[in-house]
Each structure stands twice: as structure tokens, then as C-alpha cells.
Amino acid sequence: DLSALRVEEVQNVINAMQKILECPICLELIKEPVSTKCDHIFCKFCMLKLLNQKKGPSQCPLCKNDITKRSLQESTRFSQLVEELLKIICAFQLDTGLEYANSYNFAKKENNSPEHLKDEVSIIQSMGYRNRAKRLLQSEPENPSLQETSLSVQLSNLGTVRTLRTKQRIQPQRTSVYIELGSDSSEDTVNKATYCSVGDQELLQITPQGTRDEISLDSAKKAACEFSETDVTNTEHHQPSNNDLNTTEKRAAERHPEKYQGSSVSNLHVEPCGTNTHASSLQHENSSLLLTKDRMNVEKAEF
């Protein structure tokens, strides 16, 4: 173990290094160091905050020279020094078990990766560091076993998940096959086929009936047209017969005018059967003409 005197000496050296690497504005270890034209180094955030307070150039807090945003430059070497100082402080805390008085939040800088452990060898070769390295080497064999167990647990979990997924996939297939086998029997399929065939026959029977009705309507229309044509021909046949009657009536009127007047009046009210309204109107006109002729003949006879 380190003596108290040596611990104090190391602590004083760390404090001196820390004062050199402090920012003059925030009085902390410089984060993202930036250098000016006057070779003074500050935190990048502190300098941008200072420049944004005034429009135009501002003055350096140490030498009062003008500073602009374009004049600022990043210093990589200074950032490396800060990183190495942080590593020294971490090693000091691990070796002594004491917390550094002016320690900052170094938890963000710590890294437990194997590459980081290899890099620590180049920091300080001390008894405390050696003991700590031995402890780490002793704890390393235990870690692979834990990793193997965790991997086995994960693989077993994956296997159970896969088996569950396969079961879920197989179950719908089985149910679907069961439904297909038990849903419709052979008799049901035959009945469905016969039902479809009967429906098709009914459709075939319905369509000819409609065509037959249309044919019957067409035949009825044709018969009505033929009947009207026969009526017209009958009226045409009746007209010459009426003319013959008129000639006979004229002759009778010349011989017996008194008797014919009474008979002509009675004939006005008689309509021949089986004739249309057109034929009756023609008869009325003929009878009126005959009456006028008879009157003329009677007057001539009187004179």
C-alpha cells in the first residue's frame, strides 16, 4: 500500500496539472479547448457565450486583445492532455480508494470495455495498479461463464418462442383441414349439385314461356288486323247491294208514291245487322237523297 506522504505528493502534482488545464472563465477543466490569436485557451462554450454578448469583436479576458469567431481554432494537443489527466485522476481514485477533492464528473469518461483496460497499462506502473489488474484478471474467467449461461438462457427462450410460433402455425392448418373434411358430406355435395341443376332447368323453362307469350301476342295482333281488313271488305261488298236497293226503291216510288213515303220513313230507323257505323252513315245519306228525289217527283206529278 501507498504511504500517506506519497499520496499527498501525487495529489499535489495532480492539482498543479489541473490548474494549468483549467479554463480562466469557468475555472474547470477545459472541455473542447479553443485557442485565440494571443495563444490563450478557453472552453469553446465559454468563448461563444462571451462573443454573443456583444456585437462585433470582444476582448480576451487575459490580455484584452480583440477576439472574433473566425480567429478561434481548435487545439487537439490540449484536448489530449486533458484526457490523460482524467485517466490519471481515475487511476488515483481506484488505487487509494479516496475521492479526489477537486474531482469532476468523471463517470462519463469511464469505460469498462476490454480495449480501455489494455490502455490503462500505459498509465502508471504502481503496486495498487498491479493489484487491481490481478483482481480484474481473476474476475475475467467468471465473466465468460456468466456470458455462457446468459447465452444458453437466451437460446432456450428463443427455442420456446420458436416452438410456440410453430404450434400457432400448425393449429390453424389443422382446424382448416378439419373444417374441410367435416363441413360438407358427400350427400350434401350431391344435393347441392341437384339443386343447381334444377335451378338451371327452371331458368331454361322460364325463358321459352316468355317467348311463347310474345308469339301469342303477335298472333293476336295479326288476327285483329285481319279482322279489321275483313270488316272493310264487308262494308265494300254491302255498298253495291245498297245501291241495288236504292234503284228498286226509286222504281217503286215512281209507281206508288204514297205507299213509299211511309216505308221510307220506317227504313230510316232500321239498321242492317253486321255493318259498322260507317255503313250506317252512308245509308242515312242515301235515304235522305231518296226522300228529296221522291218529293221532286211528287211535285212534278201535281203540276
Rank of each mutant, 00 (worst) to 15 (best):
K55W: 00
N234L: 05
R295L: 01
G274C: 04
L217K: 15
L5S: 10
E32I: 09
S185R: 05
R135Q: 04
V265S: 06
A252C: 11
L50V: 03
E142S: 09
R255W: 01
K109R: 12
N191P: 14
R255L: 13
K87V: 01
L136N: 14
M17E: 15
D200L: 00
K55P: 02
Y104T: 15
S287I: 02
E142T: 08
K69P: 06
S176P: 12
T96K: 14
Q154D: 05
D244F: 00
E9N: 14
R162A: 04
S126L: 08
S75R: 11
P141S: 05
A223H: 09
R132G: 11
L48H: 11
S126E: 06
Q261G: 11
S288T: 07
K54L: 07
M127I: 06
F78G: 02
S263G: 13
K109S: 00
F78P: 12
S75Q: 00
S152L: 00
I14L: 11
V153I: 01
P208E: 15
S280P: 09
E142G: 06
L85A: 01
N267R: 02
D231Q: 02
G56T: 10
N131R: 10
N131D: 05
D66N: 06
K250T: 03
S113R: 11
D218I: 01
L204I: 11
D294I: 00
S79K: 13
T211E: 03
L51V: 06
E271D: 03
L137T: 05
M47H: 03
S150P: 12
Q154M: 01
F92P: 15
V161T: 09
E99S: 05
G262R: 03
Q154I: 12
E32Q: 11
S79N: 04
T36E: 08
A223Q: 08
E302D: 05
K31L: 13
V153M: 08
S35H: 12
P272I: 07
C26H: 13
C38M: 15
S35V: 05
T166Y: 00
K55L: 03
Y100F: 09
K49D: 04
E9S: 10
P33D: 13
K44P: 07
L289P: 02
V270F: 00
H256C: 03
R162I: 06
A193F: 00
K118I: 11
R77D: 09
L86Q: 15
T68R: 06
P257Y: 05
E187Y: 00
E229G: 01
R169N: 09
E271A: 09
E249I: 11
C26N: 15
V232H: 06
L146V: 11
D218S: 07
N243I: 15
F78N: 06
T149Y: 15
V232F: 01
K87M: 03
C60I: 15
Q59S: 02
L29V: 07
N276F: 01
N131I: 11
V153W: 01
A133K: 07
V10L: 09
E83C: 06
L245N: 09
T275L: 15
E258P: 11
E28T: 11
S139G: 06
V161S: 13
R169Q: 11
E258F: 01
T247S: 11
V82A: 09
Q283F: 00
P257V: 05
V34K: 10
H40W: 05
S113A: 15
T211S: 14
T96I: 08
V34I: 09
K55M: 05
Q168L: 12
N105E: 13
E285R: 00
V10H: 10
S145K: 11
D231F: 11
S241G: 00
S103D: 07
A91I: 15
D200P: 01
Y104Q: 15
S186P: 02
I124N: 03
S150R: 10
H40K: 13
A107L: 02
I30S: 11
R70N: 08
L62M: 03
V7Y: 05
A4Q: 07
V7R: 07
A133H: 05
P208S: 11
S113L: 14
N143C: 08
Q53D: 08
E229D: 02
Q59C: 14
V298A: 12
P208V: 00
I20T: 07
T36S: 07
D66C: 02
E258L: 01
L29S: 07
A193V: 00
C60K: 15
E84M: 10
Q201Y: 02
S58A: 02
D184Y: 04
E148F: 10
V265F: 01
P61S: 03
M17W: 12
N243K: 14
E8L: 05
K250N: 04
D66E: 14
A224Q: 12
D294Y: 02
S263I: 15
L27Y: 03
C225M: 02
A220M: 05
E229Y: 02
R162K: 08
L158E: 15
T160R: 03
K87T: 05
H256F: 03
E9H: 06
L27N: 11
E120T: 08
S263N: 14
Q93L: 13
L137I: 05
Q11D: 12
N297T: 02
F45A: 09
D184C: 00
D1K: 07
S35F: 09
M127A: 01
V34Q: 13
C196L: 01
G199F: 08
S152A: 08
E148I: 00
E258R: 04
L94V: 09
S35C: 06
E226T: 00
H40A: 11
N15V: 11
S266E: 14
V82L: 04
R132F: 01
K300I: 08
R295S: 03
T277L: 05
T247G: 14
C90V: 09
Q201R: 03
E140W: 14
Q147P: 07
I124T: 08
L136G: 10
N105M: 15
V7W: 09
Q261M: 13
S186F: 00
V265E: 06
E226D: 07
N191S: 10
T275I: 13
E28M: 12
V270A: 01
E142Y: 05
L51H: 12
S58G: 05
I30E: 06
L137N: 04
E258H: 13
Q283P: 14
S186G: 02
T189C: 01
V270K: 01
E84S: 10
K55D: 11
P33I: 14
N143V: 03
P33N: 10
Q138C: 08
Q147V: 01
K222Y: 00
R6E: 08
L151Y: 09
L203V: 10
Q171K: 01
S281H: 04
M17C: 06
S3E: 04
D244A: 05
L158C: 02
H256M: 01
K54W: 03
R135S: 03
L62I: 07
N267K: 14
K167S: 08
Y260H: 08
K69D: 02
T68L: 12
S126W: 15
L21N: 10
A91Y: 11
L146F: 01
L268F: 02
N105S: 12
I88C: 15
L158M: 06
E8T: 08
R295V: 00
S156E: 13
E83G: 04
H278R: 14
Q59L: 02
L146D: 14
V7L: 08
V7H: 08
T211Y: 01
N12I: 05
L50C: 08
I215A: 05
K167Y: 00
P144E: 07
D39A: 10
D231L: 06
Q80A: 08
T96L: 13
L48D: 13
C43H: 13
Q283A: 03
Q147S: 10
G159Y: 06
G159I: 10
C60F: 14
P144Y: 05
S126D: 02
H40G: 11
S139E: 03
H284C: 04
K222R: 06
S156W: 01
H256A: 08
E84F: 14
I41C: 03
S3R: 15
Q154C: 00
P61T: 05
E9L: 05
E84G: 11
D66Q: 06
P57L: 07
L164V: 09
R162N: 13
S35W: 04
L158Q: 14
K108V: 05
S197G: 12
L27H: 03
E83D: 04
R135K: 11
A101E: 05
E140V: 09
K222N: 02
S3C: 06
I14Q: 13
N286L: 00
N242R: 00
L155P: 13
M296A: 15
R165W: 02
K55Y: 10
L81I: 10
S126N: 05
A220S: 10
D244T: 14
F42D: 14
Q171T: 00
L158N: 10
L51K: 02
E9C: 07
A91D: 07
N143K: 08
